[in-house]
């Protein structure tokens, strides 16, 4: 096929994909309209649900950053028996159905010992954070792992000969070197956590995170009442996403 035929076909097929991805979001905002959005942002139930979603997703990211980044560093820097198996296990949550993951989490943490430590699990923010963290952790851990692999290990060697201990090297060489990948991973994880429904709904129907609220309103009142919540949630996520990217790009330029 000649050049023109090739591009005609590919542009045609590509346009279908692009339209398919854009159209629902466009239709959603068009249908809700400015008035609908304003009203949604005046609804305290919607606002507190979005705030809860943001907060719990952030907590999930923070938990995985604290524990998963050290794990990523170990995996990136060392060879040890069972490393390949461990790496596959880290990827596992991406592949399991979310409701099944919710059941597994409930079986592991819902039956007493977490409660005995003074934490609620079922119908609590702890349970929501756990569900979010479990299903989206691989994005952050794998991002950090790739980031650390990119940092030449000899930078760390030189830093040590200059007097920096293991922690100093990690803070001032490894972490800054992997920053971009870690940040991208955290953003991916956070946006995935915001949308987590299947596992959250099994563990905690209440308090309602935004995806559960959307589902609840849709079930009880129909499309007309769930669309503004959906639009509001998407808008807030996109704004935060763009803001973080912008801040990061600005600090990269300096």
């Amino acid at each position: 096929m000649d050049n023109r035929g090739f591009y005609a076909l590919f542009i045609f097929l590509g346009s279908i994909a692009a339209l398919f991805l854009i159209a629902p979001l466009f239709k959603l905002f068009w249908g809700v309209g400015a008035a609908g959005l304003t009203e949604a942002f005046g609804d305290t139930e919607i606002l507190s649900s979005i705030a809860l979603t943001m907060r719990t997703a952030l907590a999930a990211v923070a938990f995985v950053a604290l524990t998963g980044i050290p794990l990523a560093y170990l995996v990136a820097r060392h060879d040890f028996p069972g490393k390949a198996a461990l790496e596959s296990l880290i990827d596992l949550p991406v592949m399991v159905p979310h409701t099944a993951a919710g059941i597994a989490l409930l079986a592991a943490f819902g039956n007493g010992w977490v409660q005995r430590m003074g934490l609620d699990f079922v119908d609590s923010t702890t349970g929501i954070v756990a569900a979010m963290a479990f299903l989206s952790a691989p994005f952050l851990i794998n991002g950090a792992k790739e980031g650390f692999k990119k940092v030449d290990v000899r930078y760390e060697h030189v830093a040590r000969t200059l007097g920096a201990g293991r922690f100093g090297v990690f803070w001032r060489i490894a972490l800054p070197g992997a920053r971009q990948e870690i940040l991208n991973g955290a953003l991916m994880m956070w946006s995935r956590a915001l949308g987590e429904f299947g596992a959250v709904v099994i563990i905690a129907y209440h308090p309602m995170v935004a995806p559960v609220l959307i589902y609840d309103r849709f079930n009880s009142y129909g499309l007309k009442y769930s669309a503004p919540v959906a639009a509001a949630m998407i808008l807030v996520s996109v704004v935060v996403f763009i803001l973080v990217r912008w801040l990061n790009n600005r600090s990269n330029r300096i």
Binding site: Y155, V158, A159, T161, I173
Partner: peptide
Amino acid sequence: LPPERRDFGFVYQDFALFPN
């Protein structure tokens, strides 16, 4: 003795300057 307590300076062939 760990490297940070030996006080031996190191210069690699391709220098390994810290990019950050």
